[in-house]
Amino acid sequence: MADRMRISLSRGDITEQHVDAVVNAANSSLLGGGGVDGAIHRKGGGAVLAECRRLRASHYGGGLPPGQAVATTAGNLPARWVIHTVGPVYSTSEDRSAVLASCFTESLRVAHGLGAESVAFPAISTGVYRWPLDDAARIAADALHNAEVTVPRVELVLFSETALAAFRRAFDTA
Rank of each mutant, 00 (worst) to 15 (best):
A2P: 06
R4T: 14
R6S: 15
R6F: 13
R6C: 13
I7M: 13
R11M: 13
D13Q: 09
E16Q: 15
E16D: 14
Q17D: 12
Q17R: 14
H18Y: 08
V19E: 03
D20I: 03
V22A: 04
N24W: 00
N24R: 06
A25H: 05
N27P: 07
S28Q: 11
S28E: 11
S28N: 12
S29V: 10
S29L: 07
L30A: 04
L30V: 09
L31G: 05
G33D: 00
G35F: 06
V36W: 07
D37A: 05
G44S: 00
G46M: 13
A47E: 14
V48C: 02
E51P: 02
E51V: 03
L55M: 01
L55V: 00
R56G: 04
H59C: 13
H59F: 14
H59A: 15
G63W: 04
G63E: 02
P65S: 10
P65L: 12
G67V: 01
Q68P: 00
A69W: 00
A69G: 07
A71L: 08
T72I: 01
T73S: 06
A74D: 00
G75Y: 00
L77M: 04
A79P: 11
R80Y: 04
R80T: 13
W81E: 08
W81Q: 08
I83A: 00
H84T: 03
T85F: 07
T85D: 07
G87L: 03
G87Y: 06
G87Q: 05
V89K: 15
T92L: 12
S93R: 15
E94T: 15
R96S: 09
A98G: 11
L100M: 02
L100N: 00
S102P: 03
C103D: 01
E106V: 04
S107N: 05
R109V: 02
R109C: 06
V110N: 04
A111E: 02
G113D: 09
G115C: 00
G115P: 02
G115H: 05
E117C: 13
S118H: 08
V119G: 03
A120L: 05
A123V: 05
I124P: 05
T126W: 06
G127D: 10
R130Y: 10
W131E: 01
W131A: 04
L133G: 09
D134S: 15
A136I: 01
A137V: 07
I139Y: 10
A140R: 10
A141K: 12
A141P: 04
A143H: 03
L144K: 06
E148W: 08
V149P: 02
R153C: 12
V154E: 11
V157H: 01
V157D: 04
E161R: 14
T162I: 13
A165K: 14
A165D: 13
A165Q: 13
A166N: 10
A166Y: 09
A166G: 10
F167Q: 11
F167S: 09
R168E: 14
R168D: 14
A170M: 09
T173Y: 05
A174H: 11
